[in-house]
């Protein structure tokens, strides 16, 4: 039975293309699937927007549904003026969604099961929040750490908690996505491995349909988790962006 973590190994397809500082940059299977995800999204959106019909066809309908879905998510969580961030949230949502779903295909590599990828996405969000908040509100941006209506003697504690809470945001954003994808794929692999192990086990072979059925059920669950995690990522991104737009009140 193959190791359940073998699927997360990074493989280098090329030698070092160029050097970034001291570290060589190579084209890996992770990079390949990121390119694939972007390619799928681009192809889909190109197919969806090409007709520009008043009465949408199938692809255009799908594209409009996707757009409306993300737009309403942003409007609900970040408010109407949060729609300036729609391109960012839309890109993040589609990238995470397609990367998650591509990872479910057999022999595929799951980009989002590596914490460095999800952490990079989360840091992008947090630095956008800080950058936009400071640019727009200046020092007033620090108001996000000072909730209104808190008695004075409690304020130092609350501010300390709010600061730690702010730092915990990229952690929770990245760890949640990474842990769900990693755990899901490992569980899937282990249960699929049971089938092979039982079949090879002689007498116990009659038990092998049990883990097989479980693997099928887990696959369905994983599809749900893949979509939900992308959605949660988008919702939380818009919630944090709302703070950049309206720090404290």
């Amino acid at each position: 039975m193959a190791s359940p973590t073998e699927q997360f190994e990074i493989r280098h397809f090329t030698g070092p293309l160029f050097h970034l500082g001291d570290s060589p940059v190579t084209f890996t299977n992770s990079a390949l699937f990121m390119v694939l995800a972007v390619g799928v999204i681009t192809a889909f959106l190109a197919a969806a927007t090409a007709p520009r019909a008043v009465v949408p066809g199938r692809w255009q309908n799908l594209g409009e549904l996707l757009y409306e879905f993300v737009a309403s998510t942003v409007r609900q969580s970040a408010g109407k003026d949060g729609l300036v961030f729609l391109p960012l949230v839309f890109s993040l949502f589609t990238f995470v969604l397609i990367a998650n779903l591509l990872g479910l295909l057999p022999y595929a590599f799951t980009v989002t099961s590596h914490i460095i990828v999800t952490a990079a996405l989360a840091l992008l969000v947090i630095f956008t929040v800080i950058g936009y908040g400071v640019a727009k509100h200046g020092a007033k941006f620090l108001n996000i750490f000072v909730p209104s209506g808190v008695p004075g003697w409690l304020l130092p504690l609350i501010v300390a908690i709010e600061v730690v809470s702010f730092i915990s945001r990229p952690v929770s954003l990245s760890v949640r996505l990474f842990a769900n994808m990693l755990a899901g794929h490992i569980a899937l692999k282990i249960f699929a491995g049971f089938v092979a192990a039982l079949l090879a086990g002689g007498f116990a072979a009659f038990l092998s349909p049990l883990p097989l059925a479980f693997t099928v059920a887990l696959t369905a669950l994983e599809v749900l988790v893949a979509v939900l995690q992308a959605y949660v990522f988008a919702v939380l991104t818009s919630l944090y962006l709302h703070d950049a737009l309206h720090p404290g009140h």
Partner: peptide, 10 residues
């Protein structure tokens, strides 16, 4: 899914 992550992240 969100709640479980929030606590650990803190």
């Amino acid at each position: 899914l969100r709640l479980s992550g929030e606590f650990i992240a803190g």
